[in-house]
Structure formats: structure tokens, C-alpha cells
Design a protein around this nucleic acid. Structure first.
Length: 516
RNA sequence: GGCUCGGUAGCUCAGCUGGUUAGAGCGUGGGAUUCAUAACCCCAAGGUCGGGAGUUCAAGUCUCCCCCGAGCCA
């Protein structure tokens, strides 16, 4: 049993923006969490590379479509590498095996009697790659999303008989776990209740796409092709392109994480396509919110786009991950505010968590020969901090299970705060001044060092880099895959007498001057 | 126009099936401390819970109307 999760396959029309980075970071944390828990994970991301919009973008920059796709999808995979994203697969829909999968899938859908020919007339938005419901007589209609003129189309297309799946989709969409967060469910339910209409799955005379077998001049509609990327992505490097293999490779997916704008494709069209092809359905579709910046939509025209490259370069992955995952309820829209960003990173990460380790390690080294002090009764499982750590670990597990990054982050922060408070109460810097205070100081410092170790462990899914640096400062081994996490989560694992390296700040405070 | 989701301290948000003086974090002000990344710890001020009407012994929490924001469908 593997846990399969996906980001959307990003459309290579343009470079990656903060939104796609956000989705990908969130998925990365889920993937890491599952792996740490000992599950086998297949974390899929990739690029969607067909369609008229891409063909035109390529033309505009004087490239062949393939060259354009190679360039942009190269940028994506490079960006994810630099962010430390732990994806297992990176699928491109121009991959030859993907084409084979699409052909097989189509053959199944056709065999189910779900492909019919029909005439598609209407106003088309190239940016959405979608037909709009404008009246045929409309004069110069514009797409309300892209504010661009719509193009009139009148073509003979192939249609997928979505209408046959009305009842099954109604039931699916109403079920408790399928659409998340819950607040997004009603909208989809209403859409389905309005009656599902067949939708076209092919285009005529659009060279940049996968040809439809048996229908000269037809290529697959980008959405049809793109969604199938989740299937082809599961093929291992040496696997043949074979739909029948997918059950062993992790299909169905446990989770599709997407932006709320493409919820309908994933929660309605996609399941129907899968039903038609006789494949099992994904367990959950999570539509997260959008990010604004200082209260405004980000956009090229406003010139306020936050470039993930710049953000990574200037602030580092830990800071950005913490801010996005800790401050924005996953699912809701969020606003990126620079002041709040630096406040949270500096307070939570540098001051509360980083400084906790720094101050404790420094005391231990100074007074106990550069090593972890003897634990005394601090090794007992009922030490107040041990109880706190255990409760925190349970809270983190539950929160991440529920995709509630925020609660997980806050729980960890509270553990660090408890340890800081403990130090202030016990004031080892006073107690050390008398010789008979020494064993107590040793025990207290041990308890806090051990708590720091737990903080580092629990941080691993959210902030893998910071977690690793903290463990390094405690001279702990790196967390390895499956069982490492569970094994490390025992109070008292920190070995007494273990030498401690010289403490250096695990996270620099952010000083954003000039502003982003 | 129909529908969905929001509108709670300066900011970001918690407030379950209605029930003691509406909570947290950040920011602000004050205190304590010196082990530490001018870090940590403690305390305080700050809200007529978007507006109005209603139901109720009792409403941020239910009903209706209106206003504002985001979105879905026309």
C-alpha cells in the first residue's frame, strides 16, 4: 500500500509563481510526514505541456512548442530541486509513455460507449482553454477571468458522455471525505445538481496535442490529456506504458492537492473519466486558497508578483515554508504580508525555537565539559517536559493527518515555549553557582536539550532543513526514511556525555532591507 | 440576477450543538532576568463580535433584511 499524492501538473504557459510554489511546499510536507511515519509514498508533480495557449506562447517567443516546453518545465524541475522538494516523480505530458497511456485510456472510454461525435459551437477562451457559456449573438465577449476577447469556434468534436455519470458523481461529491475543505463542497454539489453536460475532449486542427487514434485531424483537449498525467506519472523509469500496471504502482491516489480554481475538473470531470475507463477513484481532492500580497491580487500588470526564486534566495526555504504553512489556514485564501512574515519567522523560528537550542547547548557545554549533561531523573518518562513532548507529538500527528499544518506548527511552537518557560523558572545560571545545585542543573539542561531534540524531530515534515540543522547541533544522526522517526521519538534517547558541537544560530533573523 | 464562503481587538485568526466578566499569537506599553540570535520569561491596555430588526429567561452563536469582500453559476 503506497500513499500517492499529487500537485497539479503545472501549465508551462509561464514560469512558476508563488501559488504553485505554495501548493508544492504543502504537498512536500505531507509527503515527508507520510514517509517519516513509515509509509511508502509516491509524490507526483510535473508539467502539463499541450494546448493552444502553449503553442501560441512558443510562437511568440520564436521557439518550437517542444523547445518552449523543455525550457519552462526545466525551470520548474530546477526550482523544485532548489526548494528541496521531495517529489518522487516529475511527469511531462509530452513524455512518449504518457501518449501511450492516453491512447489506452481513450480506447477504454470508447469501449464503454462514452465517446460520441458532436458539434461544438461557442465562445472559447484560449487562456482558460475552455468554452464559455456566452450567448452566440454576443458582441465582442470577454473572458471574465482573463479579461481577454473570446474566440468563436464551430467545430466537429468528440464528446465525452459525462451526462451518463450524473448519479454516480452526485453521490461522490456529496460523500464526506472526497472534497476538502468542506466549505468548497457545496459549490461543486450545486454545479452537479444543475445537470452534467457532455464535454468535448478533442480539438480539430490544433497540432500541439496528442492525436486522437482513429480520428484524423483531432487532438485531445488539454484537460483530458493533462489529468491523465497523474496516471502516467506512476510508471517507474523502466516500466512499459501499461494502464494495467497502475494498480501496483499506487493508483488510486490518496490525495490530489490543487488550487480552488480547478476543483471542478478534479472533482467532477476526472472521476467520471476514471469511472468510464474502469479505474478506481482518488480518495480526496483538496482545493486550497489563493495568495494575495499586502491585500492585493498578484499580477504582472500590477507589478507586485513575488518571485519564488527571489524569495528562496533572500529568505531561505525554512522561512517561507514556516510562514505559509504556519500562518495560512490550509484551504483558506491567504495574504502575504512582509512585516508579518519577518515577525513570525524571527519570533517563532529564530527566537523561540532557535534560541532555545542555542542557549541550552551553550550552558551545557560551558558547565559540563562540552557534552550532554547527566540526565538524573530528567530521563524519566513522567518529567513535565517529557509529558509535554509526547502530547505535542500526538497533536502534530493528528494535525498533519488532517492536513492542518497550522495546528501542527503551533503545537511545536508551544512545546518550545514551554521549554523556554521551564528554563526561566529553574534559572540554571543561578543554581550553577553553588556546588550542590549542579546535579539539578544537569537534569534541567538535559530535559531542555531533549525537548529541543523533539522540537527538531517534529519539525521535520514542515521544515526539513531547519530540523536537520538542529539535529546536527545536538550531534544526532540524520533522520532516515521509514522507521527513523518513530524510533527517535522516545524520551531519553539523547545520550548523556555525548559531545555537543559549538552552537551557531540554526536560523538567521530575517532583515529584509530593501524590502522584497 | 441565483448560489457558495467570509466580515470577531491595530494585524492574522480561535470561538462545538445559543448560557459565567468574548480568547490566542503578532504588534504596542510596562516589569523581571543575563544562559542565549538586543534573545527568553511575566504582566497590562486594546473589541457596542459588519449594520438593523426579530425569536428566546439568555445570541458572536438561530431567523429575516441590508452593506462590504472573495468566488461559483447565469
Amino acid at each position: 500500500m503506497t500513499y500517492t499524492l499529487t500537485t497539479p501538473l503545472y501549465y508551462v504557459n509561464d514560469r512558476a509563481h508563488l501559488g504553485s510554489t505554495y501548493t508544492t511546499l504543502a504537498c512536500d510536507s505531507i509527503a515527508r510526514f507520510r514517509r517519516l511515519q513509515g509509509e511508502r509514498v509516491t509524490f507526483i508533480t510535473g508539467c502539463d505541456e499541450h494546448g493552444l495557449k502553449i503553442q501560441r506562447s512558443a510562437e511568440a517567443s520564436g521557439l518550437t512548442p517542444q523547445a518552449h516546453c523543455d525550457a519552462i518545465s526545466g525551470e520548474y524541475s530546477d526550482l523544485w530541486r532548489r526548494w528541496g522538494i521531495s517529489n518522487d516523480r516529475f511527469i511531462r505530458t509530452t513524455d512518449p509513455r504518457h501518449r501511450a497511456i492516453v491512447e489506452q485510456f481513450f480506447a477504454r472510454v470508447e469501449a464503454s460507449g462514452d465517446v460520441i461525435e458532436g458539434r461544438q459551437q461557442g465562445w472559447y477562451c484560449v487562456a482558460c482553454e475552455e468554452f464559455k457559456e456566452e450567448a452566440p449573438a454576443a458582441k465582442e465577449p470577454h473572458c471574465s477571468i482573463h479579461l481577454r476577447p473570446l474566440e468563436w469556434r464551430d467545430e466537429l468534436n468528440l464528446f465525452f458522455r459525462l451526462s451518463r455519470y450524473q448519479e454516480q458523481i452526485e453521490r461522490l461529491v456529496a460523500s464526506d471525505d472526497f472534497i476538502a475543505p468542506r466549505s468548497r463542497r457545496r459549490e461543486v454539489e450545486n454545479f452537479v445538481a444543475g445537470g452534467l453536460r457532455d464535454f468535448s475532449i478533442s480539438r480539430l486542427d490544433l497540432p500541439w496535442g496528442i492525436p486522437v487514434p482513429g480520428y484524423d485531424g483531432h487532438t485531445f483537449y488539454v484537460w483530458f490529456d493533462a489529468l491523465l498525467g497523474y496516471l502516467s506519472a506512476l510508471l517507474g523509469p523502466d516500466d512499459p506504458a501499461d494502464l494495467d500496471l497502475l494498480a501496483e504502482r499506487g493508483w488510486p491516489a490518496q490525495l490530489h492537492v490543487i488550487g480552488k480554481d480547478i476543483l471542478r475538473f478534479h472533482a467532477v470531470y476526472w472521476p467520471a473519466m476514471l469511472l468510464s475507463a474502469g479505474l478506481p477513484l482518488p480518495e480526496k481532492v483538496f482545493g486550497h486558497g489563493f495568495l494575495t500580497r499586502e491585500g492585493q491580487k498578484m499580477g504582472k500588470s500590477l507589478g507586485n508578483v513575488l518571485d519564488p526564486d527571489v524569495l528562496l534566495e533572500r529568505c531561505g526555504a525554512d522561512a517561507v515554508r514556516w510562514y505559509l504553512l504556519r500562518d495560512i489556514p490550509f484551504g483558506d485564501d491567504g495574504d502575504f504580508q512582509q512585516q508579518r512574515f519577518t515577525d513570525l519567522v524571527n519570533n517563532d523560528l529564530a527566537n523561540t525555537i532557535g534560541n532555545l537550542l542555542n542557549r541550552t547547548s551553550s550552558m551545557a557545554r560551558r558547565w559540563f565539559d562540552g557534552a550532554v549533561p547527566p540526565a538524573g531523573d530528567a530521563a524519566a518518562a513522567d518529567h513535565p517536559l517529557a509529558l509535554r513532548a509526547l502530547a505535542c507529538a500526538e497533536a502534530v500527528d493528528a494535525a498533519l493527518e488532517a492536513l492542518d499544518f497550522r495546528s501542527a506548527a503551533v503545537a511545536i511552537l508551544e512545546l518550545a515555549e514551554a521549554a523556554n518557560g521551564f528554563l526561566n523558572d529553574r534559572a540554571p545560571w543561578k543554581a550553577i553557582k553553588s556546588e550542590d545545585g549542579r546535579p539539578g542543573v544537569a537534569a534541567d539542561l538535559y530535559a531542555v536539550l531533549e525537548t529541543s531534540r523533539w522540537v527538531a524531530l517534529l519539525l521535520a515534515p514542515l521544515l526539513p532543513d531547519l530540523s536537520g540543522r538542529m539535529l546536527g547541533q545536538l550531534a544526532q544522526p540524520e533522520l532516515v526514511g521509514d522507521t527513523g522517526w518513530t524510533a527517535a521519538r522516545h524520551w531519553g534517547k539523547l545520550a548523556c556525555g555525548h559531545p555537543l558541537p559549538e552552537p551557531t544560530p540554526v536560523l538567521q533573523r530575517l532583515e529584509l532591507d530593501p524590502p522584497l
